[in-house]
Design a protein around this nucleic acid. Structure first.
Lengths: 142, 142
DNA sequence: TTGCGTGCAAAGGTTTTGCATGGCA
DNA sequence: TGCCATGCAAAACCTTTGCACGCAA
């Protein structure tokens, strides 16, 4: 929500720069670490975790938890997430791991519903719908 | 889905018996272990995990993964969980961490919407709505 | 009797934390 | 200069696994 960062460090810029090159892809903390190692730009893993957490808080990236045992995934969604940036919902397929971005007005109504009837203010950036995608459904029916 | 169990052991019965006493509540593996320890009915933690997994497969209990770092929660839903077992949605407050579960017909319509318009079969068991709860909203306005 | 279930201990993997050092503003 | 960020290593954490023994059918 709020910009929490105080300093603009080199590590932060490198990490953010990397994430920007793979928008819409799921990156794990380990992926980032490996990338930096291969690039020669060594960044401590604690820093990676701490920066990723900050970026999530700032709304610049999203965090997805597929399963308790698999590593969490992160995805760049853009820094200009203020104002009425398009509300974007995410669906994650539990089978193939595919991430689907939805821009859907009807889904936005659930935000209102939750707020009005359940006094709960939904954060669409953070919320992920888990389930089974089209392809995996038809694959099941085989 | 399918009844996978071959044997009916004492441990299984005790665990199931415990879960039945707290229907609708979220129990972690650690909760169960602690309960058994206090009862004097000692059950190995591996057994707890293995039996919980079986019970999930059999559809007797549900498993919820709230967050990668918090332990998974289990909830007794009944052994006759065929047909129209209640769909339960979960809201997690990002501020205070409180978990709210909702039984809401209107939310069930989004399942239909997702399936019909987006060819995505939602898994309500896995999906968690993140946001801000009533109390934390009013606390903000202070 | 057969082979699944159990229990202990240890491993597995991801994420967090403590603490001294370095760097941004 | 004052703090925050970094990095290393170690800890913490939940969960899974190996293996020998016990017990249900």
């Amino acid at each position: 929500m709020a910009a929490r960062t105080k300093y603009n460090t080199k590590q932060r810029e490198v990490l953010l720069g990397y994430l920007k090159t793979v928008p819409g892809e799921h990156i794990t903390a380990a992926d980032a670490c490996r990338y930096f190692r291969e690039q020669g730009t060594s960044i401590g893993q604690s820093t990676v975790y701490r920066q990723l957490e900050s970026l999530v808080d700032e709304g610049i990236i999203n965090k997805y938890i597929i399963d308790g045992n698999t590593p969490a995934c992160f995805e760049y969604t853009g820094e200009d997430s203020h104002a009425d940036a398009e509300v974007c919902f995410h669906c994650k397929c539990e089978k193939c791991g595919k991430l689907i971005h939805l821009h859907c007005d009807e889904l936005e109504t659930i935000q209102e519903h939750l707020l009005r009837h359940h006094q709960f203010r939904l954060n669409p950036m953070r919320t992920v719908f888990y389930g089974c995608c089209e392809e995996c459904i038809s694959r099941e029916e085989t």
